[in-house]
Design a protein around this nucleic acid. Structure first.
Ligand code: MN
Ligand code: MN
Ligand code: MN
Ligand code: MN
Lengths: 221, 221
DNA sequence: GAAATTATTTAGTTTTGTCTAAAAATATTT
DNA sequence: AAATATTTTTAGACAAAACTAAATAATTTC
């Protein structure tokens, strides 16, 4: 497999994440995501198209080709493995790992990554609960349910968290919620979208709609 | 401390290594070391001079300033810590670590490096026996003696190896010589600079002058 | 459906890091 | 001390990755 520049990789990864939601990605969306200007995106898309990593017709938006997708999964694999390493081995906290992994992910030595994976015991998810692609680019795709969409009185388990700030970490630690926590919603309040949730034997307590929006669960306990 | 580009870092590191031997480094030497052209070196030296990392007057060669030296030690610290990590934790062999560390050394996040150091147990030397600078840039400077310069019948301990090829590794493993091995020279042969050495209780055996040239020792056992 | 607005692309620059070819400085021979 | 050879620098070019400003296409509004 060929090697790509850091800039190319950052573009590919951003398209991958954006097209999850949108299907096809627009120039402005990507420019916004990468804190760059639309003109720069057009330039890069021409380049990635020439390398057959994106499908792109002027004014039509773009999406990754199969090859582009494979490249993206490689980058995401490296990113999440390093995040896991930083949290698990170096004891970085949850909100600090992303930034460092942004640099480490661009060291794309296959043997390094596969040995790191093995050393870490082939972890399935990163510290934020996001799945880690395996050496073949296979990634778990259990659809995650936003806590705001979970029905009342239905057992569920926290699977991931979308915001990665130290502020949300502080709040989650205070509420004793982390990935793997089993919970049920007792009551939802329409007015401010806050809700009352219950964890095991503990008394039910309240969380804001804003917090709930950033927590994802899967059914079952 | 400021951040430098990968190219700047590679130049700084190369000057550091070359000036160990030469005192002052020339344009051609550095171009040769970095597989680049003399004209490119001149350009970079102007830049590093402007950043006060090298002392340089046209046609006079160059050497690192105090600041340049500190930057170099930071790079070498990262390089050797990653080499140790790769060998010790990921079970890379001795001859494979350098190449991978060449990339990892440019991820210059202070907290990452210091936590890695701690995680590794503050190792003093890398897999090739070269000393690892501490967080303050302090580096052990025990003068290493080339095995060819060790007097006969004088107890010594292998401290480092300069060549890092898989070929020398194979030979050293076969001869059961590694860093920390205690040995004595029994006889030196002028003709081809080969020598007979003795390790502990084992029978004395012969090594070539070429091999001896790449082994460094310190006095004592 | 024309006008206004927004999104995207094009054209032309800039910075970084490299290169080649030519000029200039320095070192080595005779 | 010339002549020759070597080393280093300068000048000019190029590719990558970004930018600004202007032009053009697409979309939305009236
Ligand atoms: Mn991340
Ligand atoms: Mn993550
Ligand atoms: Mn090395
Ligand atoms: Mn080393």
């Amino acid at each position: 497999m060929l090697n790509y520049s850091t800039s190319e990789e950052n573009h590919i990864k951003a398209i991958f994440h954006l097209q999850k939601q949108d299907g096809t990605v627009t120039t402005n969306e990507l420019a916004n995501e990468l804190n760059t200007k639309p003109a720069s995106i057009t330039d890069m898309m021409k380049k990635l198209k020439a390398k057959k990593l994106v499908n792109y017709q002027p004014y039509q938006g773009f999406r990754l080709t199969n090859d582009g997708n494979k490249v993206a999964l490689g980058i995401i694999r490296r990113h999440r493995l390093w995040e896991y390493f930083l949290a698990e081995k170096l004891k970085f906290s949850w909100d600090e790992v992303h930034e460092v992994a942004e640099d480490l992910e661009h060291v794309s030595n296959k043997k390094l990554v596969d040995k790191l994976d093995e050393y870490l015991g082939f972890p399935r998810v990163d510290p934020h609960g996001d799945p880690i692609p395996d050496a073949n680019g296979k990634i778990e795709t259990t659809k995650k349910i936003c806590l705001t969409d979970l029905p009342v009185n239905t057992p569920a388990t926290v699977s991931s968290v979308s915001d990665q700030s130290s502020e949300i970490l502080e709040l989650l630690e205070h509420k004793k919620i982390s990935i793997g926590t089993k919970l049920e919603i007792r009551k939802k309040f329409e007015f401010d979208h806050s809700m009352e949730i219950k964890i095991r034997q503990q008394a039910a307590f309240n969380i804001s709609g804003q917090l709930a929006k950033n927590i994802f669960v899967k059914y079952g306990s």
